[in-house]
Amino acid sequence: MSAPVKLLYFAWLKQKTGCAEEEVQPPAEVATVAELLSWLEGRGGGFAEALADRAAIRVAVNQEYARPGDPVKPGDEVALFPPVTGG
């Protein structure tokens, strides 16, 4: 079994999914950010609701901003969050 992917959820994504942090084992065909989001959305419930509007979601892989086509592999830390509002 390969290393899990660590998922982090922030702001309203944490509220809607009801999850701050988890480790998952996506199927082997999930190789990109976009594929990971679709797989998570497929869990239904709060995940489907949270992931419905992809334009409202930013993703970081290993603490670097990532695009939908960027790779995700076992052992990565993937964070899902809305556009930032600090400052």
């Binding site: 922030f10 702001a11 970081a60 964070a79 969050f81 809305p82 930032v84 509002t85 600090g86 400052g87």
Partner: peptide, 10 residues
């Protein structure tokens, strides 16, 4: 900072 740093206000 306002567009890059991962902070969120509620």
């Amino acid at each position: 900072l306002k567009t890059k740093a991962p902070f969120w206000k509620v």
